[in-house]
């Protein structure tokens, strides 16, 4: 496993790098990476100190879907498609907010690209500001907890449905809690021609307020509470879900993270917790997660 790192500058216990290593491992390094501005880019691409062992490009924060499309087109035109797969590694902010236009274009034109959203649920590179994929209740610097407000009040954007609605042939979620599953999904995506979307839950120790020892635990709890369903769509059909043996109450996930700690004492905390529980219950029902 020598396609990424060591010597990168990520915080100890960072989930992004775990996901990245497994994605590259799945493709055995035969890929082109387009990466958006964000934590992964900053920790890995300082001049003369690249952590990458595969061809890599970073252009801007919000254009990575299009940059990857360009690589795909160039490989086609130059008859070099056999060199490897084109993948995007982009943050949740880059994906769901600022770069959703180019992402939509890439999906729509159905470029042969595996778009991987590394979802750490906020703009972590710039110090934990809310994104469209920040869950309700999260304390970020732009949705701070105050006398009135209990952190983020809005919902987490449903990127999976957005991808499916574009007719993307393969759409999946994954989590660093299940490393073999990441590799399997990436390999599967690599076999399918056209656009693919995989969203990987990648805990951020700094922004979430957890310890490296809790990186995998928190990712696992997100799955076990059904707040982060692990699912797969093929050609628009839900084809596979990771079933949950004994679903846990959302509090178990929330209480170990600093970003949610206020929910246990804020006047609106209960309301948010029950909203999150409702989301989890709906996920469980929608995807039939409970065994």
């Amino acid at each position: 496993m020598s396609y990424f790192g060591p010597g990168h500058g990520a915080c100890p216990g960072c989930g992004l790098t775990i996901a990245t290593r497994n994605v590259l491992e799945a493709l055995e390094g035969k890929c082109f990476v387009a990466n958006s501005t964000g934590c992964l880019e900053i920790v890995s691409s300082q001049y003369g100190r690249s952590a990458w062992g595969v061809p890599y490009i970073h252009s801007l924060f919000e254009n990575t879907g299009a940059v990857a499309a360009g690589i795909d087109l160039a490989l086609k035109a130059l008859k070099r498609k056999d060199e490897g797969k084109v993948i995007v590694l982009a943050g949740d902010g880059a994906t769901a907010d600022i770069g959703i236009g180019p992402l939509s274009g890439m999906f729509d034109r159905n470029h042969d690209v595996i778009y991987i959203c590394l979802d750490n649920e906020a703009y972590q590179n710039t110090g934990n500001q809310q994104s469209g994929l920040t869950p309700p209740g999260s304390n970020t610097t732009t949705t701070p907890v105050g006398e009135l407000l209990p952190g983020k009040v809005g919902r987490k954007k449903d990127m999976v449905s957005i991808a499916v609605a574009h007719g993307v042939a393969y759409v999946a979620t994954a989590s660093v809690a299940f490393h073999a599953d990441i590799r399997r999904k990436v390999r599967k995506a690599a076999e399918i021609e056209g656009a693919k979307y995989i969203q990987i839950h990648t805990p951020c120790v700094t922004g979430w307020g957890i310890d490296g020892k809790q990186t995998i635990l928190s990712a696992r709890l997100a799955y076990e509470t059904a707040l982060y369903p692990i699912i797969e769509y093929e050609n628009g059909e839900l084809t596979r879900v990771r079933k949950i043996k004994e679903r846990k109450p959302v509090e178990e996930y929330l209480k170990i993270q600093r970003r949610f700690r206020h929910l246990f004492k804020h006047p609106r905390g209960k309301e948010i917790i029950s909203m999150l529980q409702k989301i989890a219950d709906e996920n469980a029902a929608k995807f039939n997660l409970d065994v």
Partner: peptide, 27 residues
């Protein structure tokens, strides 16, 4: 052998060319 695409915006078009040019294509 040229690939021609209509992008979703000029921002997208230029970005496509960044990826293509870095891959060695005349753009």
């Amino acid at each position: 052998n040229c690939e021609y695409v209509t992008a979703e915006s000029e921002f997208g078009a230029a970005s496509i060319l960044v990826g293509a040019s870095a891959t060695g294509a005349r753009t």
